[in-house]
Simulated assay, not measured.
Amino acid sequence: MAPRTPARDRLLDAAATRFYADGVTATGIDTITAEAGVAKMSLYNNFASKGDLVAAYLERRHEEWLGLYAARREGAAGPRERVLAVVDAYVDHAEGAYAHGFRGCGLLNAAAELPVGDPGRAVVRRHKEHVERLVADDLAELIDAAAAADLAEHIAFVLEGATVRAGLESDPARLQHARRLVEQLLDAA
Results as ranks from 00 to 15, higher is better:
residue 86 V to P: 12
residue 49 S to H: 06
residue 73 R to C: 08
residue 63 E to R: 15
residue 92 D to C: 13
residue 70 A to S: 12
residue 48 A to Q: 12
residue 61 R to V: 14
residue 78 G to F: 08
residue 53 L to W: 05
residue 73 R to N: 07
residue 74 E to G: 11
residue 82 R to V: 03
residue 68 L to P: 13
residue 73 R to M: 04
residue 60 R to V: 02
residue 75 G to D: 09
residue 59 E to A: 06
residue 72 R to S: 02
residue 76 A to S: 02
residue 89 A to V: 12
residue 67 G to D: 11
residue 60 R to S: 08
residue 46 N to R: 02
residue 48 A to I: 01
residue 59 E to D: 15
residue 75 G to W: 01
residue 62 H to M: 02
residue 68 L to H: 15
residue 65 W to H: 14
residue 48 A to C: 02
residue 60 R to P: 02
residue 67 G to W: 00
residue 74 E to F: 04
residue 84 L to P: 12
residue 69 Y to R: 11
residue 48 A to N: 10
residue 73 R to V: 11
residue 67 G to I: 00
residue 49 S to V: 03
residue 65 W to E: 10
residue 90 Y to W: 15
residue 78 G to W: 08
residue 64 E to L: 08
residue 48 A to V: 10
residue 49 S to K: 04
residue 84 L to Q: 08
residue 73 R to G: 00
residue 53 L to S: 05
residue 71 A to Q: 13
residue 77 A to P: 08
residue 87 V to N: 04
residue 73 R to D: 10
residue 55 A to L: 05
residue 77 A to Q: 09
residue 54 V to A: 01
residue 58 L to M: 09
residue 57 Y to N: 14
residue 56 A to V: 05
residue 55 A to Q: 09
residue 63 E to K: 07
residue 78 G to M: 05
residue 68 L to C: 07
residue 63 E to T: 14
residue 61 R to W: 11
residue 76 A to E: 00
residue 65 W to M: 11
residue 61 R to T: 15
residue 90 Y to H: 15
residue 64 E to S: 00
